[in-house]
Design a binder for these strands. Structure first.
Length: 255
DNA sequence: AAAGCGGGGGA
DNA sequence: TCCCCAGCTTT
């Protein structure tokens, strides 16, 4: 048993994850350098509750059909719906996309605003999407916290610490402390690394601890090691208090 | 803070 | 079947 108080530093996690990402990155349209804020916004919206592998080809088609918010408004909803049908939720999503595009046209000249508050005011856009669009679409690094990132932080930093951090409303700050400073591309890669890692290695069920580059310092993996051969499990369920993102954006602090 | 939404897919 | 998902909105 290692010392209780020993904490895994964000810097160490960052190094390991970036190294892991070098050879395990997934490639998607919205990760290309020339991806426009509109493409990023549309992608993030479709990615909600939906596997990235499926979203990728559909985003390509959708963007070809609707390369801008104005263009999207000219496409019949039914057409949008049938295009995104393979992703599910097609009616709700077609409607929501139209609302988003309509707001962009009506209030922002048909362009995606480079502003956190303006983005957050868009319908169906919350903190995760705001930060992702700013980071990827505009090159302004912000932390992202989704179910994957929450789970990873929860495991690698330990339940108690994350709960305390959450109670202090600092979960986003903790994610932010993993971001490399001064280099936008590295920040993007780290955010993507967190998400890919959560999707491919630190999965909700049956996490792949044996191949995990964080296992030597991960309390959850340590608890899972067995002497007797009985598999104890890595916690899959997040504490109730962590199941949802904080709806409110805390100003100040940050860094 | 908690429920509702909304449906697909993996284990 | 059950449980989770690259969340957000509403109560």
């Amino acid at each position: 048993m290692s010392r209780r108080g020993a904490r895994v530093s964000p810097a160490w996690v960052r190094r390991r994850l970036l190294a892991w990402y070098d050879t395990n990155a997934r490639r998607f349209v919205w990760r290309r350098r020339r991806a426009s804020p509109w493409l990023v916004l549309v992608s993030e919206f479709l990615l909600r509750k939906t596997g990235a592998r499926k979203v990728d080809p559909i985003v390509r088609e959708l963007i070809r059909l609707a390369p801008s918010p104005e263009a999207l408004l000219r496409v019949p909803s039914r057409r949008i719906g049938s295009l995104i049908h393979p992703l599910g939720l097609q009616n709700m999503r077609a409607r929501a996309l139209r609302q988003i595009a309509g707001t962009l046209v009506a209030e922002h000249g048909g362009r995606v605003p480079r502003d956190a508050e303006a983005l957050a005011a868009l319908p169906h856009v919350g903190r995760y999407m705001v930060n992702s669009v700013l980071t990827v679409g505009f090159g302004e690094p912000r932390p992202i916290v989704d179910a994957n990132v929450m789970r990873l932080l929860h495991r690698v930093h330990g339940v108690r610490e994350v709960v305390e951090i959450h109670r202090a409303d600092n979960l986003w700050d903790l994610a932010g402390r993993h971001l490399p400073k001064g280099d936008v591309e590295s920040a993007k890669r780290l955010n993507w690394a967190l998400v890919d890692f959560g999707a491919l290695v630190c999965t909700a069920r049956a996490p792949r601890c044996p191949i995990c580059p964080l296992r030597e310092r991960c309390p959850a993996a340590r608890g899972r090691r067995t002497v007797s051969g009985r598999r104890s499990s890595v916690p899959t369920q997040l504490p109730l208090s962590m199941r949802k993102n904080d709806p409110k954006h805390r100003s100040g602090g940050g860094r």
